[in-house]
Amino acid sequence: MRLADFILRNTGRIVAVWEEFATTLLPAARSMDSLALRDHAPQILQAVAKDLLTPQTREAQRKKSMGQAPRLLGAPETAAQSHALMRARGGFNINQLVAEYRALRASVLRLWIDECQPAAPDLDEVMRFNEAIDQAVAESVDFFHSEVEQARDLLLGMVGHDMRSPLQTIQTTATYLAR
């Protein structure tokens, strides 16, 4: 069975393994229910399977493996980007986010190899699968980083604003006392 077909037929099993791993990512996972832990996993797997079924050139394959897959202008967020956003807001760190993808990669390949015992010609599918996962990781990490930077900038702006009022009061009082 082709890897893409295996992913589409066994999404539920794969997502269950994803969730089982995600529960170990503490403390962030402690406050999440099953639905939150599984959040975008099925959509990520569907995107990977679709990618595997789409013909591509060697150049496109190379770019995708480096996280440089072309994006359509005005295209909505990918499932990987949405997943990163939810994880950033849920208290996960970047290492935990990437660990989920490592676990996903290992789970899919282990389940596929155990069940289907693929032959040597199927190695190209493994390479394509790894490149598709790499693209999802790149999208997630980029979006996660953007979300964290935005939160940091907002926090610094609020702290700077809140510090101005007390400093102005101190400055005014010091000027008054100096007179």
Rank of each mutant, 00 (worst) to 15 (best):
R62E: 03
T54P: 05
E115T: 04
R102V: 12
Q56N: 05
Q96G: 13
E100L: 12
L97A: 12
I113G: 01
A80F: 08
A103V: 07
R58D: 14
V108W: 08
G67I: 11
G90L: 05
K64H: 08
A103R: 14
S82F: 03
T78Q: 11
N93V: 03
M86Q: 13
T78K: 11
A106Y: 03
R102E: 13
R89I: 01
L97M: 13
E115I: 02
M66T: 07
R89A: 12
T78E: 10
A99N: 07
T54N: 09
P55D: 11
P121I: 09
Y101C: 02
A84R: 04
K64R: 15
F92D: 12
N95Q: 11
E125S: 10
E59A: 11
G67P: 05
R110V: 00
A88Y: 11
M66G: 09
R105F: 05
A79V: 00
M127A: 15
V126K: 06
P118H: 12
A106R: 11
G74V: 00
W112Y: 09
V98T: 01
M127L: 15
P121W: 15
S107Q: 00
E125M: 11
F92W: 07
M86R: 15
L97E: 10
R102I: 12
S65N: 04
C116P: 00
P70K: 10
A84G: 02
P121V: 08
A106H: 08
A69P: 01
A119E: 13
Q68F: 06
K64G: 14
L72R: 15
D124H: 06
M66F: 15
P121Y: 14
T78D: 06
L109T: 00
K63V: 05
A79Y: 05
K63R: 15
M66N: 13
Y101E: 04
R71H: 07
Y101P: 05
Y101T: 03
T57H: 10
A84W: 03
E59H: 01
G74N: 08
L85W: 01
R102H: 12
A79Q: 04
N93D: 15
M66E: 15
V126H: 01
L53F: 00
Q61A: 14
N95I: 00
P70S: 08
T57R: 09
R89Q: 14
Q81F: 02
E77D: 15
S82W: 08
L53E: 09
G91P: 07
D122G: 00
S82V: 01
V126T: 03
L111I: 02
S65M: 04
Q81L: 01
A60Q: 14
E59D: 10
I94D: 11
A75C: 04
A69D: 03
N93K: 03
D124V: 09
S65D: 07
G91R: 07
R58H: 10
V98C: 02
L109Q: 02
A79T: 00
P70I: 04
Q117C: 02
L73S: 12
L53I: 00
A69G: 08
S82C: 12
E100F: 01
L111A: 07
P121N: 11
P118A: 13
A106D: 14
E100P: 00
Q81H: 01
G90R: 05
R71D: 07
P55R: 09
A119R: 15
A60F: 04
P70C: 06
I113A: 06
R71S: 11
P118S: 12
